[in-house]
Amino acid sequence: MDNRFVKGLLRDNPLLCLALGVCPALAVTTYAVNGLALGVITCCVLVCATLVSCLLGKVSSEKGQLALYMMVSAAFAAVADLIVKANFPELSAALGIFVPLTAVSSLVLSRAAFAVDNTPGEAVADVLGMGIGYLCAMTVVGVVRELLAHGSVFGAAILPGGIPSIALPAGGFLVLGVLMGVFKAIVGKKDEEEDAQA
């Protein structure tokens, strides 16, 4: 169980290794705080949707399972959207349609197959690791992009200026691509060392 949890953080990090949930990671990470916020929201939707889907049990066909999982996560995404809109109107304006779109996030849907084949406990441990891994990755991307684009981290000015084009979609693609490559290089090396020791 612990192993599964840690896997989601590093070797199987959903954003940086498995490339799941890429769209929001590109769209909202112009400021670190937005990345962190959407990471928290996605994590919550993921855990709730998985738990409920587990409890609802198995549907006869694989397709039916995916459709069911989509509807469950859509319901939780709608709830998350309402909560954010009511309590954090500024954040809701910054994140836009990416809060309701967690309903069909590839991260949320990719766990559907895993969730039905395992006990609720295992499935929740798996998605908790995945969700927190995604949250950390979103924050890292947000921090790097905010630093490069605006010269600040979480709103605190660090550098005198920035490169505004990093905040454009093109800059997002480049930053995320490079970060993924670097992360894979570091984690891959660690894996090799562990394999050698074993």
Binding site: G172, F173, V178, A185
Partner: peptide
């Protein structure tokens, strides 16, 4: 480079296409 194979290099190329779309 091996770590960049797959999605990372795809994203970087997509970034260049996005730059062209500007």
């Amino acid at each position: 480079p091996a770590p960049f194979k797959g999605m990372p290099i795809t994203l970087i190329s997509a970034g260049l296409i996005a730059l062209a779309f500007i």
